[in-house]
Simulated scan of single mutants.
Amino acid sequence: MDDESSIEDILDMIGDEHARTVLASISREPCSAKELADRLDLSQPTIYRRLELLEDYDLIKHRTLVADDGNHYKEFQSNFNSTVISLEDDEYDVRIFREENLPDRFSQLWDELGAT
């Protein structure tokens, strides 16, 4: 979210009712696109378009699973804990807070200490 256009794009995307509905659903429980379509009573193309948008902004992640019949499918889940959108001095600021893996956070801190 470094430039103004990406902030506006994220606000536009969050303004989309279907994107919000998809995001809310997978933040409660990871599921596949087919499960989302059934649960939310939306078409699969609508679901896939919103999932692609949410992935573009790194708000969701997926993992590939194998069904009992051997077919592969993706299970989607939220990639953040919370989002704060603020308006100050006529400028928007979007902050996305992610749950970090402790070993990854330690490595990042160690690297930052070594860089100084």
Rank of each mutant, 00 (worst) to 15 (best):
E29R: 15
L23W: 02
L36T: 07
A33N: 10
S5D: 09
H18V: 14
A24V: 09
I26P: 06
R39I: 11
L40S: 01
D41E: 13
I26C: 03
K34N: 14
H18N: 07
S5T: 15
S25D: 12
P45M: 03
A24I: 05
V22A: 00
K34H: 11
S25K: 13
R39D: 09
L54G: 00
L42C: 03
D16P: 01
R28G: 10
D56R: 07
S32F: 10
R50T: 00
K34E: 06
T46M: 08
Y48I: 15
R49G: 03
S32N: 14
D16N: 06
D56A: 10
L54M: 03
I47Q: 01
I10C: 05
K34P: 05
A19L: 03
S32C: 15
L53F: 06
Q44N: 15
I10D: 02
H18K: 12
D38V: 15
A19P: 00
D16G: 09
I7T: 10
I14S: 10
E35Y: 08
R28H: 12
E17T: 07
Q44Y: 05
R39N: 08
L54S: 03
S27M: 12
S5F: 15
E55W: 07
D12E: 15
L40T: 00
Y48W: 08
S27R: 15
